[in-house]
Amino acid sequence: MTAPQGKRSTLDLIGNTPLVLLKGPSEAAGCEIWGKCEFANPGASVKDRAALWIVRDSEARGTLKPGGTIVEGTAGNTGIGLALVANALGYKTVIVMPETQSREKMDTLRALGAELVLVPAAPFSNPGHFVHTSRRLAEETEGAVWANQFDNIANRKAHIESTAPELWEQMGGRIDGFTCAAGTGGTIAGTGMGLKALDEKVTIALTDPHGAALYNYYAHGELKAEGSSVAEGIGQGRITANLDSAPIDTQFRISDEEGLEWVTRLLAEEGLCLGLSSGINVAGAVALGRKLVAQGKKDARVATILADTGFRYLSTLYNQAWLEAKGLPVFPWLAR
């Protein structure tokens, strides 16, 4: 009799996500564009990795005690990951989120048993910003720890130790370029650091949405934001602890319209239902692929992150009235 082949813990379901060749983006770039399917994590996003590493790090340092509470400020996906990890390990969660985020994320957090605190959207300099509010709640709550995903480098460690080696193995030990957007900075910095340790010649590119300040920072040395974006969970106006020393070789700025074009095409042509951050990542991967091909790497391989599922944005990105209100193109099938 052989032993069962399944996972021994539900937490073992986090990571080891599939990798898929994206046909349309590959044709557009003139080289291979691969997507890491992070929507296949239990919480349906890349943030499950950071959530698990942050909780395990807190346990190892002795700050999170049995029956304790995890408090975090998040655009939603990290909170969902933390709630699932906390449920599996016997902790409670308090999640602070801007009230501008999708209804699906709010409903999901409540359904998972998290205590949800909504605050008005505000700049980071405002004391009412969701990150500052979550820190204060953690300080005021007995037995609580603050996850602090933006400046807790257990976040990027998750990608150094899991995302990067997974990509390296899945791509047969050759990756010419990797790119994704930055929210906390953990994914781009950690995956970049991990890949550079395996091959220093891998080109790491930041894909930045409009309204964020990092494109100008890496291109010109100045934190300066231009324009705006409706993408949730990405875009940063400061150098977080996770972004500190990130090995960024080049950078691209991608508009919502460009990202939405790839969201539309990947759903209509390849059957992938994704969020806007994934569309922006794919647009950046196409730009990076074209750049590498122009540099003579005709057989370049570029990887990016398919960060979460589009099912999390049915009331926003996949809603005709919402798209029209934002001045964005409507999916053709929604306008029928």
Rank of each mutant, 00 (worst) to 15 (best):
L198W: 00
L223W: 05
K196C: 05
H220M: 14
E257L: 13
S228W: 11
K224E: 15
Q149M: 08
M171L: 15
Q149V: 02
T141W: 06
F130P: 01
V202I: 14
E222L: 13
Y218K: 04
G221A: 09
F150Q: 05
I175L: 14
E161W: 05
P247W: 02
S229G: 02
D244E: 15
G259F: 00
L214I: 03
T240D: 11
G192E: 04
V202A: 08
Q251N: 09
I188N: 01
S134H: 14
M193T: 09
A147M: 14
A212Y: 03
E261V: 12
A182P: 03
H159F: 10
H132M: 15
V145F: 01
E258D: 15
A205D: 06
A246Y: 02
H210F: 14
D151R: 09
K201Q: 15
D256F: 05
E226T: 15
A246Q: 08
G172E: 13
E139Q: 14
I254A: 04
L243Y: 01
A189S: 15
I153H: 09
R136Q: 15
R238T: 12
E140M: 13
G190T: 09
G227C: 05
N152S: 14
I248D: 00
G233P: 03
G143A: 10
A182Y: 08
K196I: 05
S134N: 13
D199L: 09
Y215C: 00
E222Q: 14
A189I: 03
P165C: 12
G221C: 09
T187M: 07
E258S: 13
G192R: 08
L223T: 02
L223F: 06
Y217M: 11
S134E: 13
I204Q: 02
S162P: 11
A182M: 11
R253Y: 01
A205E: 07
Y217Q: 11
